[in-house]
């Protein structure tokens, strides 16, 4: 024992200490505070959580949130799958511009993208005006201020998040397996359903989890495209904090989402290694 490894560990900790302090002070601290708030405001006890069982409006909001997130996940992953597939198996020259298109929409602010949909799909938006102009419709179609609008906006926003893990997963597939399947007499669709799709399962799970979890916290898109008619948890929390000042309820819902996501990850980890889902070492 010459003490130098210990010294090295010590100096290593010293280096991360500022960041550790930041994380504890600015991240873990507030989370604990919110958890505390959810059982102390307005009065100590589990009253806020008990409201989940009794309040119809809370139940409705949670149901809307889960439904919108599930549908968003389904469509984003389905579209993302075909985009990733085209990128991996299309012409190499096309791959780069496809990736740049995906990344460009990835980088554009959610606010900009949401307002763009407003311009396109509003009552006097481009789509309705065009359809009315060529006489297909007499009344504008209600794309906005309803769940359809929220779904269009959210799916559009989430597709890049679905594409990237699927892309990573598809790139690891040994193309000889596809050749092998064909040489053994399988048609293209048999090969896809029985060999290709099962092999991209880690990517599918990763993409679904990512999209679903991110969707749960969506605020801007439902607020703008839903026009106040599609109330999801994030927007409801903000109303509780800023308008009705029921911080206990808001904290309870935040805690519920936090544990919901952690629970989801835990359940998934029982089926597969999370490191393989998120692109770490393969099992």
């Amino acid at each position: 024992m010459n003490g130098s490894p210990l010294a090295r560990i010590g100096s290593g900790w010293l280096l991360v200490l500022p960041f550790l302090a930041l994380v504890v002070a600015l991240f873990l601290g507030p989370i604990v505070d919110i958890l505390r708030l959810s059982v102390t405001d307005p009065e100590p006890g589990l009253g806020n959580y008990a409201a989940l069982m009794t309040s119809d409006s809370l139940a409705r909001i949670l149901w809307t949130t889960l439904r919108v997130c599930a549908i968003t996940t389904l469509f984003s992953v389905a579209f993302g799958y075909s985009i990733a597939y085209a990128m991996v198996h299309g012409v190499r020259r096309d791959r780069n511009w496809m990736l740049s298109l995906v990344l460009v929409s990835f980088w554009i602010s959610v606010l900009v993208r949401t307002f763009s949909w407003l311009m396109l799909l509003g009552r006097k938006g481009l789509v309705n005006e065009a359809l009315a102009g060529i006489g297909i419709i007499s009344q504008p179609i209600e794309f906005m201020r309803n769940e359809l609008g929220v779904l269009i906006g959210m799916v559009h926003y989430m597709i890049p998040y679905a594409v990237l893990p699927l892309l990573a997963s598809m790139q690891t597939i040994d193309t000889r397996l596809v050749s092998a399947s064909r040489s053994l007499g399988a048609t293209g669709s048999q090969t896809f359903w029985r060999v290709y799709l099962p092999l991209t399962r880690p990517g599918l799970v990763a993409a679904s989890l990512l999209v679903f979890i991110l969707s749960l916290g969506f605020y801007v898109t439902p607020a703008i495209l839903g026009g106040g008619k599609v109330l999801m948890v994030a927007e409801y929390i903000s109303v509780q904090i800023l308008v009705t000042l029921r911080w206990g309820t808001a904290a309870m819902l935040a805690a519920l989402m936090l544990f919901g996501v952690l629970g989801l990850l835990f359940v998934m980890s029982r089926f597969m290694k999370l490191s393989t889902i998120f692109g770490g070492a393969r099992a």
Partner: peptide
């Protein structure tokens, strides 16, 4: 097309389906 030539093929590195058992692999064709 290859799937209708009915030729068996053993690939370099075998190309066994990793998510299927030995039995399922052999039964595949």
């Amino acid at each position: 097309p290859p799937e209708r030539r009915n030729f068996g093929m053993v690939f370099q590195g075998y190309a066994l389906f990793p998510h299927m058992s030995v039995h399922q692999n052999i039964a595949y064709p």
